[in-house]
Every structure is written in C-alpha cells, then in structure tokens.
Design a binder for these strands. Sequence first.
DNA 1: TGACACAATGTCAGATCTGACATATAGTCG
DNA 2: CGACTATATGTCAGATCTGACATTGTGTCA
Lengths: 114, 114
Amino acid sequence: MKKAKAERLKKSGWKVGTAKEFLGLSDEEAALIEMKLALAKSLKDHRIAHRMTQIDVANELGSSQSRVAKMESADVSVSMELLVRSLLVLGASRQEVGRIIGRKKATSAAYRPS
Amino acid sequence: MKKAKAERLKKSGWKVGTAKEFLGLSDEEAALIEMKLALAKSLKDHRIAHRMTQIDVANELGSSQSRVAKMESADVSVSMELLVRSLLVLGASRQEVGRIIGRKKATSAAYRPS
DNA sequence: TGACACAATGTCAGATCTGACATATAGTCG
DNA sequence: CGACTATATGTCAGATCTGACATTGTGTCA
C-alpha cells in the first residue's frame, strides 16, 4: 500500500498495518502464517502460469477442487505440510520451496474497527 | 560415507545408497523426508548448542520430552509443520527456516539385504 | 554393582487435518 | 434473462497428528 493512501485512510478512522498487528499474533504465529501465505501464492501462481483450473490441479494432486481453493487462500484448515507436498507434486524442487518459505514479502492492508 | 568404505561394503554384499533408493520413494516423498530430516537436525543442533535437555526444550515448546525425541528423529508421527513451529518458537527466523529446508545435504548409509 | 540423568520407544485419547460433497457466488456468453 | 464455467464456502466422516504417560535403553559416576 502506498504511503499516501495509508495516511488518508488513517485520517478517516481506519487502522493500517499488517495482519499480525490486527490480530495480535505472536512473532512465531505471524511467521508461520506468512510462510503459508507465500506457499499458497506460489501454488496459485503456478496454476495460473500453466493455465489450469483448480479441478485440474486437484486431479494432479489426488484431491478436490474445494481443497485446492482452500490451499490457495491459505485457509486455516490447510497445513503447511499439505502446501509443501502439493508444490513438490507440481514439480517444485526442495530448493524452490526453501526460497518461497524464506522470502520476505511484506503485506499490508486496512480495515475499519467496529 | 567415504567412497572407500562404500566400495568395501559393496564387495561384502551390502547395498549402499540413499534412503530413497532403499525404500523406493517417489521424488516428492524423498524431498519431503529430506526436508524433515534437515529440520530435525537443526532442532537437535540448536538444543545441543544451548546445552539443553529434551525436557528443557519440551517446556519451552509446551510439549513433552517424548515428542521432542520424536521430532529430533523425524519420526513418522511428526509433521513438517510441528518442526517448523518448534524452530520458530526456539528463535529461528523465517529466513533461517527457508535456508534449512532448501539446503541440499546428501545422506548415505548401508544395509544388508535379507 | 546401583543410582541417577537423559534419550528413545510404545501407546492412546483428544485434537487437528483432509478429501469429498453440496451449495453458493462470480463472471462470461448468447 | 438462463446456461455454463470457474471459484469460494460450509460441513463432516475418516485419517492423521499431538501431548502425555509409561516404559525401556544408555551412558556416567561412585
């Protein structure tokens, strides 16, 4: 998010920051969630890059469309292990998975406190 | 394992190679197991480096001595997620976890086929 | 040898995860 | 508008994981 936009939102009574700040997560919880988000994004990027549907991917993984959707959105019901296993099945190397997990990628957003 | 020792064992009717070869694992299964082994080793290395017992680590993690032992031996009952969560709680960064997972580390051993 | 500290192994109830199914939502084309 | 395709969401039975406990090695010290 651009600096200017963040300032504008703050003045309008919005809170701006990371999910960690919103939810009051510990550092470990935040790191784990960031890892999962990065893995989920890679999974989706791979699917898009190969012009596949979630059903295609599900078949390749031996899973279902709904589970693939949950994987791509890093749903709470999806473990890190499932994400990594899936990437491996789709052809990612151990090194690539390591890079995805370690890559720092700040995310930011805004919400209006009730 | 040293090259010379491997040769010597082969001549004595032993099989020499990786766990993947022994067990006939798929590439994905082998990669996942290698990742878990690397994480498990890091966990143990960290404990030893800090001169802690498994009970100490268990207390820090909110777990039990037996589970820590299983983690360090990459027992089948231990998920990758538990290993990563534990490393994070012990102070590892997301980047460090990524490096551990991506680091290539060939392992080799021998066994006598029955 | 026994006593002690630490690590490994087996088991299991309760917690969590997963594939599958149903259903809902969103977008596109006629 | 309806028909169709793709994705998202809710639910749940069965599978897997996890903390805890008991027990079994294993090494060390006297």
